[in-house]
């Protein structure tokens, strides 16, 4: 295969898998009004990533999953505990926890810069280089590592969402009902948070810590403007995510922007949102403004 074509397909496939995996869990974040928890998690798992690297003697990329996922869940738990202590608002709890953990992460990375962990890469991602880091198992080159990681993450998220569809749905729209039905909404909540953390780590290598939130939130929010049905919203979110990856790739292939694929994809997601926001038939800007002009007389 033509190496350029190979590289392109690896980048696009990795990007699409990232977008699909994040959109699956991101849809529930948006519906639960927890978009910023996604943002907080993606920042706050940084120390977990570093810790994972330090703990594993072989510096294996899979080693950072347990610590980072634990940090992600810890973040959510810390925010909720602070909020529940009634000493800080939810807004302030979030705004105090994730910068603290992120600062800790940056400090740790700076101290151990000699290891194979580049701050810029962790924070901004290098999706255009994914084909250069292969997964080597038992001496065999199995192809790009990120592809494997995000592929498995996508499958895991898909299993979670399909397997716990009913629980997630009821837990999202009516946690009290879920509780009374014995569906354990608190467990579902932390399971979802674990999934978000794991997905964020898997996406780290491709798109970086800060831009993960673009993939988590923006396609799902775009889809939410178009439909009231949950399954359609999740499907559309995946679709918008993948579309953003392709549009972003085309944007980034302009020579002057050639080194920031992930950022271009995030911008593309924002642009798609902007277009849908303008023209969405019921919940869009134009439709809302037009509707405001005429009042429906009550019966």
């Amino acid at each position: 295969m033509d190496p350029e074509l190979y590289r392109m397909s690896v980048v696009l496939l990795t990007g699409s898998l990232t977008a699909a995996a994040t959109a699956l869990v991101g849809s529930f974040l948006v519906l639960r009004r927890m978009s910023l928890i996604g943002d907080a998690i993606s920042h706050a798992i940084l120390p977990g990533v570093v810790l994972g690297f330090l703990l594993s003697t072989e510096r294996h990329p899979l080693a950072l999953f347990p610590t980072a996922a634990a940090t992600g869940v810890l973040t959510v738990w810390l925010i909720e505990t602070l909020f529940r202590s009634r000493r800080l608002s939810e807004d302030a709890s979030t705004a105090v926890v994730f910068p603290a953990l992120f600062a800790l992460g940056v400090l740790l990375i700076s101290r151990i810069r000699y290891v194979d962990l580049d701050l810029d890469c962790v924070i901004f991602g290098r999706i255009e280089d994914v084909d250069r880091r292969p997964l080597i198992l038992l001496g065999t080159d199995l192809g790009p590592r990120a592809l494997w990681m995000l592929g498995s993450m996508f499958v895991l998220d898909l299993l979670l969402v399909v397997g716990l569809w009913k629980e997630l749905k009821i837990g999202t729209f009516d946690p009290a009902l879920a509780e009374s039905l014995g569906l354990r909404p608190a467990w579902i909540h932390y399971l979802l948070m674990t999934a978000v953390s794991l997905t964020a780590i898997a996406a780290f290598e491709a798109v970086g810590a800060i831009l993960v939130v673009a993939f988590l939130v923006v396609p799902a929010a775009t889809a939410y403007l178009l439909t009231d049905r949950l399954w359609l919203m999740v499907a559309l979110a995946v679709g918008f995510g993948i579309a953003s990856v392709f549009v972003g790739y085309i944007l980034a292939s302009e020579p002057i922007l050639n080194s920031q694929g992930a950022a271009a994809m995030a911008v593309a997601a924002g642009m798609l949102f902007g277009v849908v926001w303008l023209v969405a038939p019921r919940h869009g800007l134009v439709a809302t403004l037009l509707r405001r002009r005429r009042l429906v007389k009550p019966e």
Binding site: L295, K297, P298
Partner: peptide
Amino acid sequence: LTVAYQTRPVLW
């Protein structure tokens, strides 16, 4: 007096 949130009147 007529008051509406978006298109939904709350006072007519």
